[in-house]
Every structure is written in structure tokens, then in C-alpha cells.
Design a protein around this nucleic acid. Structure first.
Lengths: 223, 223
DNA sequence: CAATTCTATTGGTCGGATGTTTGTTTTCGC
DNA sequence: GCGAAAACAAACATCCGACCAATAGAATTG
């Protein structure tokens, strides 16, 4: 194994073992490189790798810290990877979403707060058929993310958020706009909020299955 | 943004735009560093970071290549991250698995091949109540991975595989062994295979929900 | 055809110049 | 003397370029 990979493993182990906890500060590069027995340059490669997957947070002029390691950060790492898998297997990603989102909605139905319902309604209210694609995508991401959040499982939220990518979303909504199907999609969103507001888990689940399947179907044709 | 981060973004964009396709070879470090306008050292940090998340494949003495970018590689990246989140929210991870695995089993029921059924049976046959924990964990991972694979959606498989970590699994199976519950767990596994063999999607789904919930319940007590 | 040499490429190290942040000390105004 | 602003110092990450080692693959040679 390369020196750098060893360093990555060692740092990772230090975190798993508890020697380094969330928020802790790592020794300075020079010191840590000596401790792990490699050069600063190589250590920096290791640190950089851990930084992009949001494990370490490097603050220039200050020091390097272990991030909160909240599942939320997993989403960012996931998105980074999923972004690269564009066009490859969008449909497979949708299939996974079709499993997770309805389940998330069902979970959310029993737990969602009045504030969250209000946020969902506000999200839908802000747009209409003549809204730009960019804003539509933003709304869509927010809408689905709010539901995932209401399910109250941060890993579920992370995986779902991570599986979403602006790139694909943008393409889908461009298509929806061209097909003049924005109204129908929004109506579906409103229906979902209503079901959640009534705490009807079964209906919310079914509506989301229908909603995502619809988009999936459209996408299948488009490809 | 730091130069290294810029480099990461640029390389990423080169892949997304299609300028670099899967399997393609990148220019030599020296050349690429000049093209992107940074030193070789800094570029190497960027490359290392992309290597960790399995986007690039660096072959010493040969060159750097874009990986196949198969979803499978996503699992490795995911596992790396999930490993770090140990003890934090194992239960949340289980909740996600309880959603995905039954769905995967239901999908698998209609598609699973005779060979895959045979592999599942072989996997179960190799163990018994007096098998060591290590072998049990290995079997368990294989068993669940086979089902996910049979669902024939590589993203689903990846996410599921990625969500599994040997660390947690080992702890669970140590507990199962102590509780002398190995037999019961294996019986459940056999029941699942039977349902899949008969193509009974509903039953397979239910059995997996029961199976995972059981482990989840045990884990909840143990914590 | 096989062994050897050559060449291109990544792996790894070092040290130095630079920029940033944080906290401390000093200075200044009142 | 007190408080606020400014200058300063220390700690630290950033970035670079040069250097040699290890390796893989191609070209050469026997």
C-alpha cells in the first residue's frame, strides 16, 4: 500500500478508535507527518482526500479539524460521486428513489410538524407554470428534501439528497416545461402535501410512488 | 477556492463534459499540471483525492486513468464514509436498510436466476451454529449482497453494499452468537431463499422486513 | 524468442517562500 | 487609569519546484 494510503487509513482509524473525535483538531502537518512517518507533501495528499469526502476540515492559518461527521455531510460526498455517473444509469437511480421516497413520505406522515407543512406549502406556492427552469429545479430539490427531512432519519435524508443531482433534475424539468406538464407536476406536489398534512401515510406513499414513476416514465421515453 | 480544489473541479468537469471518458488516460502529471496552471505537487493532491473516491485509477509507471465509474465503485466510497460514522447512528442506517432490502428482495423474486438461487443456498449451507463469528459475518454480507445483486439494479446494490460495514456486522453477529440465536437467524435466511426460489415477491419482502427488524430490535436493546 | 536496456510516468521527499488566521501586545484617545 | 483601536507576533496551511526512486511498457539486442 502506498504511503499516502497508509496515512489515510491511519487517520481514519484514529477517528474510528476515538483517538480523534468530531471537532478535534489534528496536530500540525509537520508534527503529524513525523508521527505517521511520512513527508508533509504526502500527508497533505492524504488530508486532501479526506477533505473532499468531508471528513476533515482544513482551515488555513488555523489548523485541521475533524468535521462533525454528521450524516448530512455524507450527502455532499455522495452527490460528488453521483454527479460523475451522469447519463450512465439515471434510470437505476430513479428506481432507488422510487423505493426510498415513498417510504420516507410514509414515515414523514406520522411525524411532520406544522412548520414543515407550512414550508412545503410555501415551496409550492412560490412557483407556477411560467417559472424558469432554474427556479423549478430549486423548488423540486427543496420539496423532496423537506419530505426526506420530515422522515426524521438523517441517513435517509442524506442518501436521498445525495442521489439527487442538479444536472439530472435540470434536464427533467426542461422536459417537463416543454411538455407543458408543469401544472400537473405541481398539482401532484400539492396532493402530496395535503396527504402529509392529514397524516395519511398510505396515501402519501402511493402519491409519491405515482409521482416518481411518472417522471421515470417520461425519462425512459426521452432517452 | 484553493488551487487544488479548482483542479478537482476541473477534472470532474472534464469527465462530466465527456472530454474524459471512462477508461481514458489523463495527460502526464507534468503536462496536466501546466494545462491546469498549478504545480505538480498540488495536482497530485487533487488526483489523490479523486483516487480515494474511485474516480481515478493511478498506475505507477504507467499513467492515470478514469475508472469505469461503475456504480459498484460507489459502494467502496460509501463504505469508507459509513465506516467513520460508526456508533453514531447505526439504527438510522438500519432503518434505511429496512426500506431498501425488502424492496430489493421483491425485485429479485421476479428476476433471480437458478445460479443465483444456488449461490444463496451454498452460502447458507457453508455455516452452522458453531461457525466462527468471522465466517458468519462473511456469509451474512455475501447473502445480503447476493440478494441485492439479484435485484439487478447496480445503484441499489451499491448503496446497500455501501451501507453495510464489517464493523457493525461483526458486533451484531457476536451478539447473535452469544444469544445462541445463530440457528434462528440461519432459518430465516433459508426461508428467504425459499421464497425467492418460488418467486414469491410478497413473502420475500415480508420475510426480509421481519429479518432486519429482528436484528434492529436486538441492536436497539444492546445499545 | 528471450533477455536487456531505454524511456516515460508516477511515488515520495525536502525545504523554502507566501498568505491567513488568531491572539497578544502596544498604542492612542478619553 | 480604562477601553478601544491598531500594530505585531506566532502558528499554520498553501503552493511551488527540484530531486531521486520505483515501476511499467516499449524498443533493442542477442
Amino acid at each position: 500500500m502506498a504511503v499516502t494510503d497508509e496515512a489515510i487509513t491511519k487517520i481514519k482509524d484514529m477517528i474510528i478508535s476515538g483517538e480523534l473525535a468530531a471537532g478535534d483538531r489534528l496536530p500540525p502537518e509537520k508534527e503529524l507527518s513525523e508521527k505517521l512517518g511520512l513527508s508533509r507533501s504526502s500527508l497533505r495528499e492524504a488530508v486532501k482526500a479526506l477533505e473532499i469526502i468531508r471528513v476533515l476540515d482544513v482551515r488555513r492559518g488555523d489548523g485541521t479539524y475533524v468535521t462533525s461527521l454528521e450524516p448530512k455531510l455524507l450527502a455532499e460526498a455522495l452527490t460528488f460521486i453521483v454527479d460523475l455517473h451522469q447519463d450512465k444509469s439515471i434510470l437505476e437511480i430513479f428506481e432507488v428513489r422510487r423505493i426510498l421516497e415513498p417510504a420516507a413520505a410514509a414515515m414523514a406522515a406520522g411525524r411532520i410538524t406544522a412548520e414543515q407543512i407550512a414550508a412545503l406549502r410555501a415551496s409550492v406556492a412560490g412557483i407556477s407554470a411560467d417559472t424558469g427552469v432554474e427556479a423549478l429545479v430549486e423548488h423540486d430539490l427543496l420539496f423532496h428534501s423537506l419530505i426526506a427531512t420530515a422522515a426524521n432519519n438523517s441517513y435517509l435524508t442524506s442518501v436521498l439528497d445525495g442521489l439527487n443531482s442538479n444536472t439530472v433534475r435540470a434536464r427533467v424539468w426542461r422536459g417537463i416545461t416543454q411538455d407543458a406538464a408543469v401544472d400537473r407536476t405541481l398539482t401532484e406536489h400539492i396532493g402530496i402535501v395535503d396527504a402529509l398534512a392529514r397524516g395519511d401515510a398510505e396515501l402519501a406513499k402511493a402519491l409519491l410512488t405515482v409521482h416518481i414513476s411518472g417522471v421515470e416514465h417520461w425519462l425512459r421515453q426521452a432517452l
